[in-house]
């Protein structure tokens, strides 16, 4: 009964039959595999197929094999980060019922960055695990703050107010970050990684501690799919259909915060992935979150791997950080979404 209601809420969902969605799923998986393969094979240095096979197995005898061995964790990190950000974006757009929600635009990434910098500068934090905890704390605080500011006043949380609150919070956070880092020559070198996100220096040692958080965020987010479908009907209707609105919203938001914090702790702030991916996926599979969320994760992974490849190709022999590529791809999409008169209601 409730499932039917959720489908009714999304008439567009009917256009996307089960068969069509399965076909898209296969296509997306194939694309992900292809992107991963290209990411390992293509880069500043050209390598041959045997080198690639040896390098993937972990051999580092020749330079080419060593290059490939470095690209593997980088590709894995890009896939993880992209998937996490895409999923987080879809969840945030559902929770705030706001087509412009994105961890970067809403200032969540900036909050995570500020928290980590404070942790390093004032509390002497070291080690990825400590960074992840701090980043998640910062992301959570920033998300709660921006949402609170955006929903105060009459009219509730409109896209404009949330985006402005996010922009203001980002500027304030980066001001504080700068003020903390500037006098500390010992940590100022690391500030670069807090201005632009990248996946260049990925190692398994850095990825591993974040995995539990990403997994927890993933399960929480996927588990909230049904709740998000109900929330899409509006709070009253959702409550009438038996959803515990506050709990559904809090659970989903916690999942998104875990994903953003975990990602930002390794990669630094990467914007616009969470904005672009859900809109793309809604075109492919409709607005049912049970399909949308997994698709957002997969598509996000593809997008970030592709952006990373692009960054390696366009700036040869140097590299362009992936956070810059996503901003250039994402900002036009952002403007396009703003220009749509009827942004599809969430």
């Amino acid at each position: 009964m409730k499932v039917v209601a959720a489908e009714d809420a999304a008439p567009a969902g009917r256009r996307h039959g089960r068969r069509g969605r399965l076909a898209w799923l296969l296509a997306v998986l194939a694309l992900l595999a292809a992107a991963g393969g290209v990411s390992i094979g293509v880069g500043t240095r050209e390598v041959s197929l045997p080198d690639i096979l040896n390098g993937v197995q972990g051999r580092t005898d020749t330079l080419a094999e060593a290059v490939v061995a470095v690209r593997v964790p980088r590709t894995i990190l890009a896939a993880l980060a992209g998937g996490a950000l895409g999923l987080a974006g879809a969840v945030m757009q559902g929770v705030t019922r706001n087509p412009l929600a994105d961890p970067g635009i809403l200032g969540v990434n900036a909050g995570a960055g500020l928290a980590v910098v404070i942790g390093i500068a004032w509390f002497g934090l070291t080690g990825t695990l400590a960074f992840v905890w701090t980043a998640i704390l910062g992301a959570g605080l920033a998300a709660a703050f921006v949402y609170a500011v955006g929903s105060l006043g009459r009219g509730g949380a409109t896209p404009l107010k949330l985006a402005l609150a996010g922009a203001a919070t980002s500027i304030a956070a980066s001001s504080f970050t700068t003020a903390i880092v500037l006098p500390r020559g010992d940590i100022a070198g690391g500030v670069r990684s807090w201005q632009v996100g990248g996946v260049g220096g990925a190692t398994y040692d850095a990825i591993l501690p974040c995995l539990p958080f990403l997994l927890a965020g993933l399960s929480l987010s996927l588990a909230s799919a049904r709740g998000l479908n109900l929330l899409a009907l509006g709070d009253e209707a959702a409550a009438g259909l038996g959803a515990r609105v506050a709990w559904a919203r809090a659970g989903a938001a916690l999942g998104a915060v875990l994903l953003c914090g975990g990602t930002t702790a390794i990669c630094g702030p990467i914007g616009f992935v969470g904005l672009v991916v859900p809109h793309l996926c809604r075109l492919l599979v409709g607005v049912d979150h049970r399909w949308l969320l997994p698709f957002a994760a997969l598509t996000g992974a593809i997008l970030l791997i592709a952006a990373d490849i692009l960054g390696r190709i366009v700036a040869r022999p140097s590299e362009m950080d992936v956070g810059i590529v996503t901003a250039f791809v994402g900002a036009p999409v952002f403007v396009w979404i703003v220009r749509q008169r009827r942004v599809r209601e969430l």
């Binding site: 412009l100 635009i105 901003a327 952002f334 220009r339």
Partner: peptide
């Protein structure tokens, strides 16, 4: 809103 998007892009160009 358009301005927020454009300045995000330009800021990353500066960076």
């Amino acid at each position: 809103l358009v301005g927020i998007g454009i300045s995000a892009m330009l800021d990353s160009l500066i960076a």
